[in-house]
Design a protein around this nucleic acid. Structure first.
Lengths: 148, 148
DNA sequence: TTCGGTTTTCCCAATTTTTCCCACTTCTGC
DNA sequence: GCAGAAGTGGGAAAAATTGGGAAAACCGAA
């Protein structure tokens, strides 16, 4: 179960140093690669490769002639790339994914249960401000009884 | 049932000395870690790890395709980190959580039933002023019959 | 097919950061 | 006033980040 936020930097070569504490959980001790893909909210997703498979299978099972399917498939499958960490625990993020998420240097690495999200730092702040500064936060339907 | 307020200081390394009286209740005598996370009101929450689990489970059960769910999950799960107290009963608060809550040195530690809140002292004062100086305090809907 | 140039990949090493532990000071209660 | 406990700060060892560089692979052109 992934959780926690880390602010990290991409180096000049586009390499992203995965936080030490999440390397083993993410790669299952170095035995599996990870899958990077794109999310509609303009962030990137990181899955352990085995965890990505069922997600991809679900997307591929979308009705292919339904107009609502194609954008999802193009985004999630089209951008997906399987990568391994280098010896120093870094991911080489492709220019395409970096451009999509608006990532250049400063990024936030966010645990979200079964995957991690990678955000451009500035975009992350904006997304956060919408919840914290936006008066009364809205709970999703059916979840109005949620309490901390 | 946690209650009570303590004004405490973070040291130069970002370590927060948990008040002695709450150490044992919070860690169940040193047997469990604590979970730190973020709250929309720009304070931090501290749970005994076992007490956090059901809360996290509720958040993870939010409908994932509803746009109102993602910000909550990103805030509460995304910022969550499991920590243990060091030998002197201190928590090393990550730079990310400190930045989120605007914490640098002086903080208030506030009991809130099943968890504690950590506030930047200045922000805490402002929050208090809004209740005490703000004319007639407003009660939440359905609670208008509340009396002391 | 071969050569030159470019890009990519992999590895190493120095610096910086983190973590853990110890010691000193201050406070509190007896 | 004394003893114990708690708060506070610092330091050394270990680990991690970061940048660079050399070797290998790739590509295009002659």
């Amino acid at each position: 179960m992934f959780q926690g936020a880390s602010q990290i930097n991409l180096d000049a070569k586009g390499r992203l140093a995965v936080p030490t504490r999440v390397r083993d959980p993410l790669t299952q001790g170095g035995t599996v690669p990870v899958v990077l893909t794109a999310h509609p909210d303009k962030c990137l997703l990181v899955y352990p490769a085995p965890a990505w498979e069922p997600v991809r299978a679900q997307i591929m099972a979308f009705p292919s002639l339904n107009p609502a399917s194609s954008p999802w498939k193009r985004l999630l499958v089209g951008f997906a790339e399987e990568l391994s960490l280098d010896g120093a625990g870094r991911l080489l993020v492709s220019p395409e994914l970096r451009a999509f998420a608006g990532i250049d240097k400063r990024v936030m690495f966010i645990g979200q249960g079964s995957y991690y999200e990678i955000w451009d730092l500035e975009r992350w702040q904006q997304q956060l401000d919408r919840l914290t500064a936006g008066g009364n936060p809205v709970l999703p339907p059916g979840m109005e009884n949620f309490s901390l």
